[in-house]
Structures are given as structure tokens and as C-alpha cells.
Design a protein around this nucleic acid. Structure first.
Lengths: 345, 345
DNA sequence: GATTAGCAATCATATATGAAGAGTGCTAAA
DNA sequence: TTTAGCACTCTTCATATATGATTGCTAATC
């Protein structure tokens, strides 16, 4: 009989079915799953005693846990991980949802960044989880052109056009007057030097070069370099949608959990770190302790980098309980990823 | 004896002292205040029985409440209101706090809006309440100059300089190519028509005028007007600081309160409304039911419009429990208001 | 050998009970 | 007018008890 053949993962078919049923049931109900409740599952036509034996085995192997001696089982982190890697369906998305997402992403936008915002909101609406996003790192983008516009006697605007179509602008203030002629020179010089270069080249060495070699006034160059550098390093927009949605989840009936969550959400640096961490795959799933940060060990996080027309547009992530609807979230992310990739602007 | 003379507010001196003591004690401890605990107050050298009688009177007049028959008293909304209007000290700010605020506000900024952000963070840090802010309404600002810069064949940037020194810029995309010459014409035309006018003039009638009277292509004018209009009406930045601070307050040990609060904070339109509502005074205090919105009836909100160098810079507000440290918050707001007013840029 | 029925054991949850303590309201005395 | 004193009310905490869900294990059955 093939029925109970051990697979190379070490779990036979029936164990897989039991694990999958428990994970999905627990995701739905947030209640420990009993052996008896599983007997109504179409795939598991056994008595509760048999299922109890399988559950005991799965617990011994570390895929399940009990909350107390006489409770039903809940998935362990290892259980969730196995489910995500081996058992999960990633096309768990309805026609209505597909239509809703498509409509949202059709919205005409003037700046590509707005798409990130729309995608973030849409994901939060469909999955009912708190969603966050960060704009792309501009560091490595290439400068296509840089324009300086004189806005006042001591005020200049720098507008940087990059190869991805993203536009960054910033205002620079001076302690002395700048003329229209000076602006033209600055314009020429910067473009001469910077066209085709990555944004990160705008830094101290460039400042020194321009001052020494080009004999340009430090009072003019320094504020320009400093301000542009500030904008390209610091100014990554952070989006946040649906903080309140977390509060509808049963695990948030503990004040400690709720407080911990709000602390995380409030910590902008932490959120930025989360969205910037390792990207081995298209979609990255961090379950509980798999998160590097101590504060996140009770949560799961799913992130993906999204591109528009082949160009990196930043990272979108979801944060929720370990009992997360991985299937739904991953399906939605895959679909949005695909939709955005195809989209021109 | 003058001691117990009734004032025109209908409360004699001793009642005022009792009310003040109860409000302040309750703000400090979040526990109903007993007659006995007040006997240790320097200002109230009476037995607990006497104070009990005064408390019973104040309750009859609606300034105090009980949480149950044998509990101490807590202030009613009327009690808080009386305290804010008649009893509160608005110089409740330490030298350390003054120094801290001054240092923060000294920070050099390139754009005035950054000051709003700094002020918001500082207020939240000092008061330990959740603080929100919205940038100024640009509607009524006067256009000093408007510059159009061609960024690409079908992409224009409009930069609007206003009389307050605020700069607004936005990108406009077209379905057809725009030449450098056209840009110059647009520049000339818009400045001719708009210099000295309020921003809100940029709307449909202007669009129609330019198209009909000036015989300008609808394909060029329409996107420009639409996009600028969008930016000046919609694009008021919302700042939020210290959501998590609310969770340190004892009233947030109820999940219902916590959830309600996060819902409010998440509702950006509501927050904007709060900050935009009536401004009779320099600093506006809304206690519980005094708030127009139903969701806010368990909270108190304190807002003020801040100006920099005489120019309206938006509104900053605090949201917290009715048991708010009105004295501290109002003192800090007054000081920051004063500091900002003096500041040049 | 795999499956299942049956049952004792375990633990969470809900409810009831009672004691302790904090605080008030009222009355009568100072 | 103020205060001492005391009965009364209500919360809070600890303890006890009943109920029910679920498991693990054993022995019987397929």
C-alpha cells in the first residue's frame, strides 16, 4: 500500500493531511483543534482515537503543541513552516478579489510611488492584516539628469531624475545670494559629473572634489551636497495601513499583545529594518522566532519586493499573528506582484 | 468672614479647593479620590467628614461623580471644564523642559514644515500623550510665483512659491509632447494670471478661461489645473507621534478602550477633521462629550494653531483620556506656541 | 498490524461563597 | 459649623466546587 508511505520529508500522507487540517482549522477558528473535530474532515475518515495517535506522533516530532494537558493541538512554528513550505496553496484568491485588485491597480497615478500606497491599502483591505510598505532605496539608482532651479536669492531647488522614472526634489538654502548665472554653472557642472552615476556618489568625496579641483565656493557646494545626501539616504517614505485590523483578531484580547504590537508599529526604524531584511525569494515568510528582532517573535511577517515595469519600487509587508492566513496572504501578494510587474507608467 | 463667600461661579473657596484637589489627585493616580486622602492636603485642614459633606455638595451640583456607592469621587466633565476654565495653572513647565523644548526647536530646517514635525514629536515626548498635527491649509495662501520646469517630453514639474515661504511642487504628466517653448509660454501665462492670487483660484473656471479666452489646448491645460488642484486640496501632511504612549495609561487596561483608540488613530479623515474644527481661542480644549464626534466622547482633545514668524503653519493636537494633565499640556503648548511665533526662518 | 471503543485522568472555565477592606452617608455630640 | 462614630454598601480577592472538553492509554476488534 502506498497510503502511508513515508516521503522524504519524513511525514506520511495521513500525517500531512492531519497537520494541514489542524493548521487550517486553527487559522480559521483560533481555537486548539481536537481529534474529534477532525473526524468531520472529508479527507480523514478515521475515528478520533486514530487521529489522536497521529496527533501524538506529530507532537513528538515537533509539528504540534498543546496549550495544556487536556487541550486540543495547535501548530508549532515548525508546523507552520512545514505547512508554508509543503502544504500551502498559493492560488487562494477569488474572482471578486481578482477584480477588486485589478480595479484598484488601474487607478491612474502621476507618480509611481502612489502605486505602492494603493497596493498597500489594497492588500490590507483584502487580507485584513496590518500592512506596511517602504519606498525603494534610491542609493543605487542612476542619475539621468539633475536640474537646479533658482527659487529665490538664497533658495535653490534640486530636481533629480533617475533611470527608474522616479523624481526626487529638495530645497537648498544658502547663507549668501546665488545668481541665475551661478545656477547655470552649477547645473552644467553637476550634470557633467553626475549623469549616469548612482545617486550614492553624492557624498563628501564629491564635495571635496568640486571645491578643490573645480575651485568652487564651499559655501555653495557644501549645502547642496549635504541636503541632497540627506534626502536620498533618509527620505524613504513609510506607509502603514490597517493598524486597527489587528485588534479584531482573537489573539489581541490580551493587553500585553496589543501593547507590544502598537509599540512595534510605532517604531519606524524597526519597521524599516523589517522591510529591508534579507530577500532570498520572491516572497519571504518569517514565522515567530524566525524573525531576527526579539519584539517580533510572537508575530509572523510576510514581505515581497515589488517592481513596476521591471523597476524596483520598494517592499511591502504584512505583520500579523503566527496564526496567519499564509495561503491567502501569499496568494494575494503573488497576484499583486504579477499585476504590478506588467504595468507600464 | 470672606472665607466661604460664594463667587459668581457659584462655588465658594473651599469647594474650589476641594474640586481642584480631587481633579489633580485623580489626574495623578487614576484612582477615585476619597475624603480621607484629601485631609493630608495642606490647603484642606478639615476632617474627612467635612470634606465628605463638600464632596456630596459638589456631586449634587454636578462637578463630581462616583463610580459606585461606596467609592471615592472622580471629576465629571463639568468638573474638568470648571477646572480648566477657572482653576488651572498654565505655567506648569520645568526649567529642564524649557531647555529641552528650546534645543529641539533650534534645529536647523530647510523646510518650514519640518518644524511642525519637530514640535509634534517634542510635545509627545514631554507630555507622554499621543500627538497629531496637520500642515497648514494652503487654499488661502497667495501665489508669489509659479515655475514650470520641463523634466521630460511629457513631464512637467510645477513649483509654486507662496507668500508664507512654503513651496509646493508637483509632477504633471501629459498624453502628448510638450516643448521647451510651450513651457515658457505656460510659465508666462500662469504667472501673469496668478501672481498675488490665492491658491484656490487654481480650479475649473481658470481652466475654462485659459482654454477659451487664451485659446490654449485643453490637453495641456487640463492636466496642469487638475494636478495642482489635487495637490493643494488633498495634500495636507498628517503627522502622528506616540500612539503607543496611550497604552501606558491605566484607562487603557480595557481592551474596548484600546481598540476604540486605535480605530480613531487609524481614521485619517477623522484626525484631519479634529484638527480643523473650530478655533475660538489660542488653545482649544474639548472634554469628552464636548467633542462633536461620537467616537471621541471618552477622550479629551487639546489643539492649537501654530504660527512661524506670523505665518499660519497648521494645527497640532493631543488626544488622551478625559483624565488628562490639562495643566501640563496647556503649559507646554503655550510655550511652544510662543517659541515658534518668535522664530524666523 | 491497523483501527477503534471505552474510560480514567487532567485541566480550563464558570459560578458561588465568604472574608477583608475601603469609603460613604447620616446622626448626634462638640 | 465641624467632627466623631458607626452602620451600610460595594469592590476585590481568595477559595471551593461543579461542568465539560480533551487527551492518553488499554484492551477489544477488524
Amino acid at each position: 500500500m502506498l497510503k502511508n508511505k513515508k516521503t522524504n520529508e519524513g511525514l506520511d500522507d495521513r500525517k500531512k493531511k492531519v497537520l494541514q487540517a489542524i493548521v487550517e482549522e486553527y487559522i480559521n477558528t483560533a481555537e486548539p483543534v481536537s481529534s474529534n473535530s477532525l473526524t468531520s474532515n472529508e479527507e480523514l475518515k478515521y475515528s478520533s482515537a486514530t487521529i489522536r495517535n497521529e496527533m501524538a506522533n506529530l507532537e513528538k516530532s515537533g509539528y504540534l503543541e498543546k496549550t495544556h494537558t487536556s487541550s486540543g493541538r495547535i501548530p508549532s512554528e515548525k508546523g507552520y513552516r512545514y505547512y508554508v513550505d509543503e502544504l500551502l496553496k498559493d492560488d487562494n484568491i477569488s474572482l471578486e478579489e481578482i477584480k477588486y485588485i485589478s480595479d484598484k491597480l488601474e487607478t491612474k497615478v502621476n507618480e509611481i510611488e502612489d502605486l505602492t500606497k494603493i497596493a498597500t491599502t489594497t492588500i490590507s483591505e483584502i487580507t485584513h492584516y496590518t500592512t506596511l510598505a517602504i519606498g525603494p532605496s534610491t542609493q543605487s539608482l542612476l542619475i539621468e539628469e539633475i536640474k537646479f532651479v533658482l527659487l529665490g536669492p538664497r533658495m535653490l531647488m534640486a530636481i533629480i531624475l533617475t533611470n527608474t522614472g522616479m523624481v526626487k526634489e529638495t530645497i537648498i538654502k544658502f547663507d549668501e545670494d546665488i545668481t541665475e548665472k551661478q545656477t547655470e554653472t552649477i547645473n552644467y557642472m553637476f550634470n557633467q559629473k553626475l549623469k549616469g552615476q548612482p545617486l550614492e556618489i553624492i557624498d563628501v568625496p564629491l564635495e571635496e572634489y568640486l571645491i578643490k579641483e573645480m575651485k568652487y565656493s564651499v559655501k555653495v557646494i557644501k549645502p547642496i551636497i549635504e541636503q541632497i545626501k540627506k534626502v536620498i539616504t533618509e527620505d524613504r517614505k513609510l506607509y502603514l495601513e490597517g493598524t486597527n485590523k489587528a485588534f479584531d483578531l482573537p489573539e489581541f484580547n490580551s493587553l500585553a499583545v496589543a501593547k507590544n504590537f502598537v509599540n512595534i508599529i510605532d517604531e519606524k526604524d524597526l519597521m524599516t529594518d523589517i522591510l529591508n531584511s534579507g530577500f532570498a525569494k520572491d516572497i519571504n515568510v518569517y514565522i515567530g522566532d524566525e524573525n531576527e528582532k526579539e519584539e517580533l517573535k510572537d508575530f509572523s511577517i510576510i514581505t515581497f519586493k515589488h517592481k513596476v515595469g521591471g523597476k524596483d519600487m520598494g517592499t511591502i509587508g504584512i505583520i500579523g499573528p503566527k496564526r496567519m492566513d499564509y495561503s491567502k496572504v501569499i496568494s494575494v501578494m503573488k497576484y499583486i506582484n504579477k499585476k504590478l510587474k506588467d504595468k507600464g507608467i
